[in-house]
Design a binder for these strands. Structure first.
Ligand SMILES: NC(=O)c1ccc[n+]([C@@H]2O[C@H](COP(=O)([O-])OP(=O)(O)OC[C@H]3O[C@@H](n4cnc5c(N)ncnc54)[C@H](O)[C@@H]3O)[C@@H](O)[C@H]2O)c1
Ligand SMILES: NC(=O)c1ccc[n+]([C@@H]2O[C@H](COP(=O)([O-])OP(=O)(O)OC[C@H]3O[C@@H](n4cnc5c(N)ncnc54)[C@H](O)[C@@H]3O)[C@@H](O)[C@H]2O)c1
Lengths: 230, 230
DNA sequence: TGCGGTTTGTGATTGCACTCACAAGCCCGT
DNA sequence: ACGGGCTTGTGAGTGCAATCACAAACCGCA
């Protein structure tokens, strides 16, 4: 079991377990945690937690649970968070500024160490302690500073172009905040964060429940009419 | 087919098709689009596009493709974007400010119409043309102003408390930016956007490809040694 | 040492989503 | 009117992920 490749769905949940475990460890110095408890904290099914963790190895003790510290270390290692990944951000506008000065990333092993933009008015400016450079310096910076991850926070019109520059510079992991799909070679991993999409999905289900409510109301009225008639 | 419930995975993709169609319609006045083309733009498989769209109805024409305008309207309607959904945001810090003044949401039918915080220093301030109110006024505001969606952008420690207040006020759709899981009744829909999680997933795959590269390199060296020996 | 209570790890099963492949259907030119 | 070239819509097959259910294993206690 533990030599099999870890399913994508499991990888996506590991960070959630990590977060819950950190809460347990930092908050009160909890020593062990059961799959049931961890499931509650992370908001998933207990069996799923156990199966997920079993892909990493047999790190639990039957009848007891999982050692919080040990599990923390194992997940951290599995996610590759024992080393930190120098990260470049391209497009230093409203969103870029908020993200670049956010302290929460550093806590999780991501240091945004390089900022780039195409606008001369922005270049040279200092954001979160880092000087913004011209996008043309990207390739050199990646080579010299070992940048591994690229964050795109330009408008959608520039996203594809920026993605190509990142790929050309040798970056294999991209987080895209622009609401557009970017095309990259198959060995490059792109993840998209699109806030409007999330809102639109909420909208769909909201509308659906509203529609059901309205239908119920209509039904009730209909029934009342029939009762009146009798 | 078109009376069956729409699968979750399809709902999650509709916003992407919507975006691509808008690009087609606004950019050059494209009249029709094939599933192949739409798939390329949205970055998915053509068969998937067709199946997804077939859940909405038979809106395509064989041998021709889909009428862009008509399909746009149908997806918009299906997602509930023909009406707009007044949205409340709670926690007006760094991220909250960036989001509240972002114009991109309004374009997609979401108006952030009410801002709340718990900090007296923030309350009364104007952000993106809206006055920040105290969180205690939330319930009344929801009732009077018909707020439908709540966005949580407080630190994780406050997220659960805020979520409960939103639920208590009658909100059924929540977008949570705090990196923590919130517990809500089953009739409330929560979506989480967690940037660190996305980075951690990238980290996992990045580490994996690095490990493979290192292994290859080791192999190459080993082979060279053997060649030398002969 | 043995027993009862507890919790893990994992085969087995179910369900969902993706992909394939192709008949049905449309347009256009002749 | 009809045939050729396209493109949709969808049944069938496949694979992955979620859930169930239980044997195996552990702890503490008598
Ligand atoms: N601001 C928000 O709250 C918010 C919310 C959701 C999504 N987004 C998305 O995030 C992205 C950024 O939003 P923003 O509000 O920060 O935009 P912005 O206009 O404030 O900033 C964009 C920055 O990117 C730079 N840029 C443009 N083209 C570039 C290129 N080719 N190479 C390098 N730099 C380039 C610009 O000079 C500018 O500094 C957009 O795609 C937006 O849709 C923003
Ligand atoms: N800033 C970023 O770029 C960024 C990036 C990723 C994630 N996040 C997450 O987004 C959230 C907000 O981040 P931020 O940087 O804006 O934080 P912040 O500290 O700047 O702002 C938080 C705001 O929430 C308010 N608040 C706290 N508790 C509250 C409560 N119980 N009720 C109402 N209001 C309350 C505070 O008064 C403050 O104004 C955090 O959870 C953070 O982890 C932020």
């Amino acid at each position: 079991m533990r030599n099999r490749p870890i399913p994508e769905a499991t990888v996506a949940r590991l960070p959630m377990y990590l977060r819950s475990l950190l809460d347990l460890a930092e908050g009160r110095g909890v020593m062990t945690v059961s799959s049931e408890e961890l499931a509650r904290l992370a908001g998933v099914n207990a069996a799923k937690v156990r199966k997920d963790l079993s892909y990493l190895g047999s790190y639990g003790t039957r009848g007891v649970g999982y050692d919080v510290e040990y599990l923390l270390y194992q997940i951290t290692r599995e996610l590759g968070l024992t080393q930190d990944w120098p990260t470049a951000m391209i497009g230093i506008g409203n969103l870029g500024r908020a993200l670049a000065s956010y302290k929460g990333f550093a806590e999780r092993g991501f240091r945004i160490t390089a900022l780039f933009d195409a606008d001369d008015n922005v270049i040279g400016e200092e954001v979160g302690g880092i000087i913004v450079r011209h996008i043309d310096e990207l390739k050199e910076a990646v080579a010299e500073e070992g940048l591994c991850i690229g964050i795109i926070s330009t408008p959608p019109s520039g996203a594809q172009e920026v993605a190509e520059k990142l790929v050309d510079a040798g970056i294999k992991s991209i987080l895209n905040f622009a609401p557009s799909h970017v095309n990259v070679p198959p060995d490059v991993n792109v993840r998209r964060v699109d806030l409007s999409v999330e809102l639109q999905i909420l909208s769909f289900y909201q509308q659906r429940t509203k529609a059901i409510e309205t239908a119920r109301e209509a039904n009730r009225r209909l029934e009342n009419q029939q009762t009146d008639r009798r």
